[in-house]
């Protein structure tokens, strides 16, 4: 896969009405495993959505591999795979095979390539041989793996995930981690599951739409805990 392309944010703000929900001066992400933490409503999902063109910044630019997300949405979406928090919303098609095919067909791949990619991704995420199963009757953990497989099969350069472990039990979380570790892509995860961030290269803490801290998981988590403590003391 080679080096994954960089993500750059430049003077980015996102406003809803009068409220500014994201305000980031200058950010360049090149690490392999990046975490994003912060309180509810701090802007994690908003930041992730900017990377895939699902949210267009009110001002400033977001660039992936030099491409502006507002101008080159199609190319950007090919590079950035997005795993949504809620598998119910992400899983669209009735069967596993059709769900996998939705993104692959969008890339206009010949059917032989599609079959190969599908088999490979299902194998990787432990769903091999279940192509014809209903996608909606899967367990929570299986649904999560299907969403990962369907995005992975599209071979994005960057994988963005919004609270991917939220409905997984402890064994499920561990299994998720084991599946993420060998992935060749750059992975960006927003989460409240602090354990998941162990071994990540870089973790950002968001607070009220701004970057509050940025560093190793240990340093970032400490800064986050301090922030929460300070807020509680003030209240």
């Amino acid at each position: 896969m080679g080096d994954a392309p960089a993500i750059e944010l430049n003077q980015v703000t996102v406003r809803h009405g009068k409220r500014t929900v994201l305000d980031i001066d200058d950010l360049r992400l090149t690490d392999e495993r990046i975490g994003l933490i912060g309180a509810n409503g701090s802007g994690k999902s908003t930041l992730l959505r900017c990377l895939n063109g699902l949210v267009t910044p009110s001002s400033g630019q977001v660039r992936v591999d030099g491409l502006d997300t507002a101008q080159s949405i199609r190319q950007v979406r090919r590079k950035v795979g997005f795993v949504f928090q809620d598998p119910e919303a992400q899983i669209v098609m009735p069967t596993i095979a059709e769900e996998m095919d939705l993104g692959l067909k969008a890339q206009r791949l010949p059917s032989s390539v599609r079959r190969e990619r599908m088999a490979d991704a299902l194998q990787r995420f432990g769903l091999q041989g279940r192509e014809e199963d209903s996608a909606h009757l899967l367990s929570g953990g299986e649904k999560r793996r299907l969403t990962l497989a369907s995005i992975f099969a599209m071979h994005p350069d960057i994988l963005v995930m919004d609270e991917p472990t939220i409905m997984l039990d402890l064994p499920g979380r561990r299994q998720f981690r084991r599946m993420i570790d060998p992935l060749p892509q750059r992975v960006l995860i927003a989460t409240h599951d602090l354990e998941l961030l162990e071994g990540f290269q870089r973790v950002l803490v968001l607070d009220d739409g701004r970057i509050h801290a940025d560093g190793s998981p240990r340093a970032a988590i400490e800064a986050y805990l301090d922030l929460v403590d300070a807020r509680e003391a003030a209240a």
Binding site: N52, L54, R74, R77, R78, G81, F82, F84, D86, E88, A89, Q90, V92, L102, G103, K105, A106, Q107, R108, S150, I151, M154
Partner: peptide, 21 residues
Amino acid sequence: LAEGVAEAVEARGALTDDDDF
């Protein structure tokens, strides 16, 4: 939920043109 589904389809670049579905 419908909004979420529409986003998920768009994020994959599906249905952007004609006959890919």
